[in-house]
Design a protein around this nucleic acid. Sequence first.
DNA 1: GCGACAG
DNA 2: ATCTTGTCGC
Length: 210
Amino acid sequence: MDLKKLERLQNRLKDRLTFLPLKGEVSRVAGCDASFPGGMTLGVCVVLGYPSLDVVEVSYSLLKTHFPYIPTFLSFRELPSLMQAYRNLKHKPDLILVDGQGIAHPRGMGIASHLGIIIGKPVIGVAKSRLFGNFDGDVPDERGGFVHLKHEGKVIGAVVRTRKGVKPVFVSPGNLITVEDSVKWVLKLTGRYRLPEPVRIADRYSRTLL
DNA sequence: GCGACAG
DNA sequence: ATCTTGTCGC
């Protein structure tokens, strides 16, 4: 486990990121998350139909955990399992949401970006707390209110209020999508809960599947 | 040297 | 993330 080497890998992968408006039809959306039941990593991917949000498929992968939690290196802990679960899907999604940061990361390589580079599809990162980036003032307390997350003047994501009176979430593009479209889709996929349905359901399965 | 630090 | 008792608010 050579962190310096992994940092260089993240810096190299960063050059392969692309940010474009989301084009084409979105008929399926996926949510990915992992849990850690006693020394194991349970990665889960759920696919929902869009716009119905009905669960189309759930796939998972249970692997022995081989990497600890170290801030800014989350992908090396969770991706092996999440990738395996993703490969097992029979119905591939057009858009993916992952529990964690996208480019709102010190080296622009949060887990959502890393996953986005590997599978080459639009991925959005949705985190419950901040890792990197700053924002001014407060997030308007109304569903849909948001302020940009920035780093050295550049917009790298947004702090979004998905429900009035509830703590906001940190949204950032992983790959093949823009900050604006990421915010727009997170809101379109959020119902009566704090987290958008794909990640909320993936989270629930990852802790209930056993 | 000190504080921050996704899940 | 996981563990785990009690409390606040609708």
